[in-house]
Write a protein that binds this DNA or RNA. Structure first.
Lengths: 167, 167
DNA sequence: TTGAATTTTCAAAATATTCTGAAAGTTTTC
DNA sequence: GAAAACTTTCAGAATATTTTGAAAATTCAA
């Protein structure tokens, strides 16, 4: 297999995997492309490479920046904006963890707290309901703490201490 | 706030949150409904409660079963099938962890292994590419191991030992 | 068996998401 | 300050996903 062929396969597969877990295919493919690119790329190059429109590229680049997975780079003597992926995969993974925590876990915690406030715990039915809400709160809180911990750790610590500790 | 109102809010919110992280709204709502229901429900009751079609109910019930989050119950003297949610939220969460591991992490690990096999590591360009692939493999493997560990632990251990250990 | 009760399937409709491309907006250069 | 270079926006088009509901399949009691 040619290297280019393998890269294309990587980009394509990465996009397909992403859709499986609720992430936009194009966003993943742009991310994969930038991950594999030794130099940073501008919008035109990404359009050309992935055969997609300018609007699509622009939108997904901003999305990727909001996830903290790519950076904008202004090259001296160049008018165009260039983009570069965070190449440290462990760092990128921690970033994804932080964002998912913020986007997925925080809303659950907030909602459960809100709902708890609105229910008076005097009937047995209320108690049953509150038990479910409290349990979900506890599980989400556990996940939140764990993810917080992991995203604050260094790769070296994660791969050595953590894994060994639990072997 | 009436208890019923709070329950409805819970069901509705749970559905909305779910769409935010790539899960079908109706599936989440059925799950929430069953979580809150003291008795198991049949398809007609779910249709009525959530105002959705029979086909939709059937499809999502099967989906929920494939996630191991609900069980089919055959009541003596009843022709209809009844459904019950796993009420132990910690158990349900571990089940979700197991499934996500299988559905999201395993495919990454397999794909990365596959891609590695197809590239000969003799050029510097290949080496760069393989580094990315290997790093992703390592991160996914770490996530896979961690999730495996957590999903095999009991609630009591998770909430006491685990959290304290890392405080 | 038969047929009534129930579940499953699936093509078409409804809805939601993503993508395009041209127009509008912004920045930089001269 | 005009115009060229570039980026952003967004309405409509394309695509993908979800939902419906009626028909087909299955189950079960008699």
């Amino acid at each position: 297999m040619e290297l280019q062929e393998a890269k294309d396969r990587f980009i394509h597969t990465w996009g397909t995997l992403a859709t499986q877990w609720g992430i936009n295919r194009t966003m993943s493919q742009i991310h994969a492309l930038l991950l594999l690119s030794p130099k940073s790329l501008n919008a035109d190059e990404i359009m050309e490479e992935l055969q997609i429109s300018r609007g699509n590229v622009n939108m997904n680049l901003r999305d990727l920046m909001s996830w903290g997975l790519i950076y904008k780079q202004l090259l001296p003597g160049e008018r165009k904006e260039y983009f570069q992926a965070e190449k440290d995969i462990w760092k990128a993974a921690r970033q994804i963890g932080r964002e998912r925590r913020r986007r997925e876990l925080s809303p659950i915690l907030e909602t459960m707290e809100d709902i708890k406030k609105g229910v008076s715990d005097d009937s047995p039915e209320s108690a049953d309901f509150l038990k479910v809400v409290n349990d979900i709160y506890a599980v989400a809180g556990f996940a939140d703490n764990t993810l917080d911990l992991v995203t604050k750790s260094e790769e070296s610590w994660l791969t050595s201490t953590f894994v060994k500790l639990f072997k």
